[in-house]
């Protein structure tokens, strides 16, 4: 996991090519998946259409439990894409790791803090944008920072940062740790020939299974918490 990444400076802005390429791959995979699933839609769903509708119902369920009513409907698409993207990104590193010349080219994009912070930032911006759009600037400030009482203001402001950071690093930490352990087990397998390989193989399999589980749970948790944070901004707390 400690391999170097390609870093390219473009217009003075540093780009981590590893993140760009693997993120792009994850997005292409997500798009291909939904594109494939949404071909030949019929009024009576069958086969793959059922899968897609189940996914949509699942993410809609996450949204509607946190943001009830009509208000939540506009976040359905965001939750759907966010969930699919994080899910695919989490599982990607378990299936493929492309390392060229000692530099990683493809891994789980979510095992990099910049990527998870980018996702958290999107959620953060969306929540503030809709907070302002629904309540106006003044209402947004009152609703977001002065509730339940005005002396909570510093804590509320601090919470904005902690929410953002915990949202990003929870995902990053889980996926990164999973990959670290996978790499460690992999290096154990290679260390002392056949004996360690035989020992490490079931360990690797168990950990990979567990990582799949963690990846799914984290995608769910990320989307759920995103919706919780958004609901704090777009709904009046009693």
């Amino acid at each position: 996991m400690d391999e170097e990444s390609y870093v390219v400076k473009f217009l003075g802005i540093p780009f981590n090519i590893t993140n760009v390429v693997s993120g792009l791959l994850a997005m292409v995979l997500v798009f291909c998946l939904v594109w494939f699933l949404s071909r030949n839609l019929t009024l009576r769903p069958k086969g793959k259409q059922n899968v897609l509708e189940w996914l949509i119902d699942f993410t809609n369920g996450i949204v509607s439990t946190n943001i009830p009513g009509e208000q939540g409907k506009r976040f359905n698409l965001l939750a759907f894409v966010l969930f699919l993207f994080i899910f695919v990104a989490n599982q990607m590193g378990l299936l493929i790791q492309v390392i060229i010349g000692g530099k990683t080219l493809i891994k789980s994009p979510t095992s990099d803090p910049m990527v998870t912070m980018a996702l958290a930032l999107i959620v953060l911006l969306v929540s503030h944008y809709f907070g302002v759009m629904i309540f106006g600037v003044k209402g947004y400030l009152v609703n977001s920072y002065m509730r339940p009482v005005s002396f909570m203001l510093p804590i509320n402001i601090l919470e904005e940062f902690t929410n953002f950071l915990t949202l990003a690093f929870r995902l990053y930490g889980n996926i990164f740790a999973g990959e670290v352990l996978l790499t460690l087990i992999g290096s154990v397998a290679k260390s002392h020939g056949l004996v360690t390989t035989v020992v490490a193989l079931p360990l690797e399999m168990i950990w990979q299974g567990f990582s799949i589980f963690i990846g799914s749970i984290q995608a769910y948790v990320f989307v759920t918490l995103s919706m919780v944070y958004i609901s704090k901004k777009v709904e009046v707390e009693e």
């Binding site: 802005i13 540093p14 780009f15 981590n16 993140n19 760009v20 939904v34 930032l121 999107i122």
Partner: peptide, 22 residues
């Protein structure tokens, strides 16, 4: 290697494009 600000931009933009496509 510093903050990869480019990644933030790349992800924000490409994520919006992904949402639009989906």
């Amino acid at each position: 290697s510093g903050l990869y600000i480019g990644d933030l931009l790349f992800y924000a933009i490409s994520f919006i494009i992904l949402i639009a496509l989906v």
